[in-house]
Simulated assay, not measured.
Amino acid sequence: MTPAVPRPASRPRLLVVSPNRSHLALLARRLGAEGYAIVTAADGATALGELRRSPIDLVLAELVMEPMSGPELTRAIREQLAFAEVPVMLIASRAEADPAVRAFEAGAEDVILKPFHFEVLVARIERRRAAAERVASMRADMKAMDARAAMKAIELGELKDRMYQLEAERRRVSA
């Protein structure tokens, strides 16, 4: 196992969802040791409640859960505008038929097949988080550019009005 990489003061918050208590505890402990702030949920309804309660940077959930499956949880997350951009990764057993297809159709960013190497899981989490941060940064930049464009349009309108006033004044003086 690689040593934990030091993280900034604001630790990324991961929501880990699994009905299997021992699996949930293991993931929470190992991911916590990697520097993540871990929030856990035993089912989809609880996970949605946790998403509403505090900001989450990434959701890591089991594909097979009852009563709400991983793909159903993913759809529920995607349907809510406030959470639509939160990356979702689903964990699936190799024995499950077409897990990736169901997960991706629901809007998940990634599917991790069991058994997996923990280091690979962490690398994939970081890759998904980095991509989400780039998208958020681009959106913020676009919003700032839109605001600047709106200000420039207002300034241009004001200059145009001033030009018409000056032109009207020039005509009045020359008449």
Rank of each mutant, 00 (worst) to 15 (best):
A92K: 13
A76N: 15
L81M: 12
D43F: 03
A100E: 09
A76P: 11
A95L: 05
S93G: 12
E50G: 10
A82K: 04
K114L: 11
E79Q: 14
G49K: 09
I56T: 15
L60G: 03
L58D: 10
V59A: 03
A41L: 01
E79P: 00
A106S: 12
D110E: 15
V59E: 09
A97T: 12
V120A: 13
A108T: 01
E72M: 14
F104I: 15
A82M: 12
A106R: 04
L113F: 03
L63G: 01
P115K: 14
F116D: 09
D57A: 07
A97Y: 09
V39K: 12
E126V: 01
V59F: 09
H117N: 12
S93P: 02
R52D: 14
L63S: 11
R52L: 13
L63A: 07
F116N: 01
L48P: 04
G70H: 07
D57Q: 07
Q80D: 14
P99Q: 07
A42D: 08
A123V: 01
I91E: 02
R102G: 14
L58H: 08
A106H: 10
M68S: 04
R124E: 04
A123I: 07
A103T: 08
A41E: 02
R102P: 04
K114S: 08
L90F: 08
G49M: 10
E50L: 13
V101K: 12
P55I: 05
L58K: 01
D110K: 08
A41P: 02
L60M: 04
T40P: 02
I91Y: 02
V111P: 03
G49S: 03
L60C: 10
I38T: 10
E105K: 14
P99T: 02
R53T: 03
P71F: 09
T40R: 12
T46C: 04
A61Y: 03
L81Y: 09
D110F: 03
P99V: 02
M89P: 01
T40E: 12
E109M: 10
P87Y: 00
A123W: 04
G70V: 11
T40M: 09
I91G: 11
L90D: 05
V120G: 03
E96Y: 00
A103Q: 05
A61R: 05
S69N: 00
E105M: 14
L48W: 07
E109F: 00
R102S: 14
K114E: 15
P99A: 04
P71C: 10
M68N: 02
A95Y: 09
A82N: 07
I77V: 15
A97Q: 13
L113M: 13
M89N: 02
E105H: 13
L63Q: 11
A92N: 06
A47N: 11
A123F: 00
E66W: 04
I77P: 06
L113C: 12
Q80V: 14
P55M: 01
E50M: 15
K114T: 15
E126F: 03
R52N: 13
I56V: 15
A100T: 06
V39W: 05
V88E: 02
G44E: 06
D98I: 00
A82L: 12
E119Q: 11
A84E: 11
H117M: 00
E96S: 08
T40H: 04
R53P: 00
A47R: 12
V64C: 07
F104A: 04
